[in-house]
């Protein structure tokens, strides 16, 4: 059954009632429905009239206050490729790079952050029976073909998180707001929204019954930053690894995707760069501090190359 609530509060009331999936752009939910992965009702946000916080992009850049950015969960990805985001180039670049133009025109920020992973076992009707994320208790990829899977062994599931925006927001220490039955609540960092990746049953840690309302970026405006990804083709490919680097007064921040079941901050590498290490050394130190998965060990070099390339690019950027 599909519900079409007319307001955010109607949506959250329905959502709090039980097992239903929220649908905004639908690009992932429709696919999952066809694939047999969707259980229960759908709450479609088509008719919701969002307020500015839920459905808009607002930036205080240039207004004489510390620049900050708020992005509503119902904002289409394509709406992020606008000059208002120029103070956060890594974020704008990420929004311009992910998926395809047609998908970016439909998909929302909320959906982008909360989409399900694309593991080829999880998405396979005949291979996911026992998959953690489909209610099972094993990871077929772990003992199977994990060529494009996680590098960091942080939990039983070794899928990689598909959210490019998540990777970019992590690099800006973004926070998020949820709407719950009790009302709006600032719910912490986007890093916490994803968690450590140790929980194999979920792609994110959004509180049950909550609707992701908006994400906020209060830091990093004007920092040199860059987003990039390593793929076989130029466009329209899930990245083997992706990263956002931000070089600010407090040092370098690196967030990476394609390496774990959630986007991750590479804090060991950040520290190493702060103490003068090269990108390659920094990434190798990061990787030495983590348990790695053998099949995707090539991603160490890929990540090192990518971070070096992004630091170079950020460096060339004058802001």
């Amino acid at each position: 059954m599909i519900h079409f609530p007319l307001s955010p509060s109607d949506a959250v009331t329905l959502h709090a009632q039980g097992r239903a999936t929220l649908r905004a752009g639908g690009t992932d939910v429709v696919d999952r429905a066809r694939n047999g992965l969707l259980v229960g009702d759908v709450i479609d946000l088509r008719d919701v009239q969002p307020d500015a916080m839920f459905g808009g992009v607002s930036s205080t850049a240039g207004l004489g206050v510390p620049p900050s950015l708020s992005i509503g969960a119902l904002t289409r990805i394509a709406a992020l490729d606008v000059p208002a985001l120029d103070a956060w180039p890594g974020l704008r670049e990420a929004a311009r790079t992910l998926a395809t133009p047609q998908v970016r025109a439909m998909a929302t920020v909320g959906g982008g952050l909360l989409q399900a992973n694309r593991c080829w076992y999880f998405r396979h009707p005949d291979l996911r029976a026992d998959c953690h994320k489909a209610g099972g208790a094993t990871c077929a990829a772990r003992s199977g073909d994990a060529l494009r899977h996680a590098l960091f062994d942080v939990g039983p599931c070794i899928s990689v998180h598909p959210s490019t925006l998540g990777c970019a927001l992590l690099a800006y220490d973004a926070t998020f707001t949820v709407l719950e039955a009790a009302g709006l609540r600032d719910a912490g960092t986007v890093e916490a929204l994803f968690g450590s990746g140790a929980d194999p049953t979920r792609d994110n840690q959004l509180p049950d019954g909550a609707v992701l309302y908006a994400v906020h970026v209060d830091t990093g405006a004007g920092d040199r930053s860059a987003y990039g990804r390593a793929t076989g083709r130029t466009w329209a490919e899930w990245p083997l690894v992706e990263a956002t680097v931000r070089v600010g007064p407090a040092g370098v921040v690196i967030a990476a995707g394609g390496v774990a079941p959630v986007p991750v901050r590479l804090r060991v590498a950040e520290q190493a760069l702060g103490s003068g290490a090269s990108a390659g050394e920094a990434i190798h130190r990061e990787c030495a501090s983590r348990q790695l998965l053998a099949q995707s060990a090539y991603k160490v070099d890929l990540l090192a190359g990518l971070v070096q390339a992004l630091l170079d690019r950020a460096d060339r950027r004058s802001l």
Partner: peptide, 26 residues
């Protein structure tokens, strides 16, 4: 059938969108 190839692209309010993963209700 996954929005990856674009063969189903149509204009929705003038904007190209893939229709195979677009709910008709939208």
């Amino acid at each position: 059938g996954h929005g990856a190839c674009g063969a189903c692209t149509m204009l929705v309010d003038g904007v190209p969108q893939v229709s195979c993963i677009q709910p008709a209700s939208h």
